Amino acid sequence: MVFESPVVDLINKYLGDFVENLDKSQLKLGIWGGDVVLNELDLKESALDDLDLPVKIKAGHIGKLTLKIPWKNLYTEPVIATIDGLYALAVPNVGIKYNEEKEKKEAQENKQKKLQALEEVKKLEAEKGT
C-alpha cells in the first residue's frame, strides 16, 4: 500500500525509542477504519531509561500494538493505543541515583499547585458571598 512507508516512518519517530527494527512488514494498515496494527515488536533494553525507574528492561516483546487513529478528526479526538501481549524481563536498575534536588523541586511544585487550588477555592467562596 502507498501509505505504509510514511506511516512506518512516523511510527518510528515516536516509537523508535521503545521498539527495535520496526518495518512495514509488521504493519497492517486500515486507513478508513482508523486502525494501525503492529505485530511482533521487540522492546529495546533502553526503553525505560528516561523514566528513572528502579527497573531496567533486559528483554521484552509486544505481541500486538493497535493504534486507533481518528483520521477524520485528528485534531479533536484522541489516538488510542492498545497493547496485547506485553512480555518483559525486568532487572533492578543499579545505575539510578537518588537526585535530592529533583525530589525537592517536585515537592515544591506540588506545594505550589495545592496553594493555587486553595486560593481558587477562597476566591470562588468570596465571589459567592458578595
Results as ranks from 00 to 15, higher is better:
D23I: 00
E4G: 13
L89W: 05
K44Y: 11
K102G: 09
T66E: 00
E125N: 09
A117Y: 07
E125K: 14
G95D: 05
K114F: 10
L53W: 07
Y75N: 12
D49A: 11
N110E: 04
K72A: 14
D52M: 08
P6E: 01
L38N: 00
E77H: 09
L89I: 14
V36G: 07
A107P: 09
I83K: 04
L27C: 01
P70Y: 04
A107I: 14
E4A: 15
I69V: 15
K114D: 02
G95C: 03
N21L: 08
V79T: 08
L22P: 14
E20G: 10
N21E: 11
N110G: 12
E109C: 06
K111Q: 13
P78A: 01
E40K: 15
G30L: 07
I96E: 00
I80V: 10
E106G: 11
V121A: 12
D9S: 12
D84P: 05
L115E: 11
A126C: 03
K97C: 01
I80R: 02
V79M: 06
D84S: 12
G95V: 02
L22M: 06
K105R: 15
D35L: 05
L41P: 03
D23T: 05
L29S: 10
I57V: 15
V79A: 04
V91W: 00
K44L: 12
L48D: 03
N73E: 07
N12G: 13
V8N: 00
V55E: 01
I96A: 05
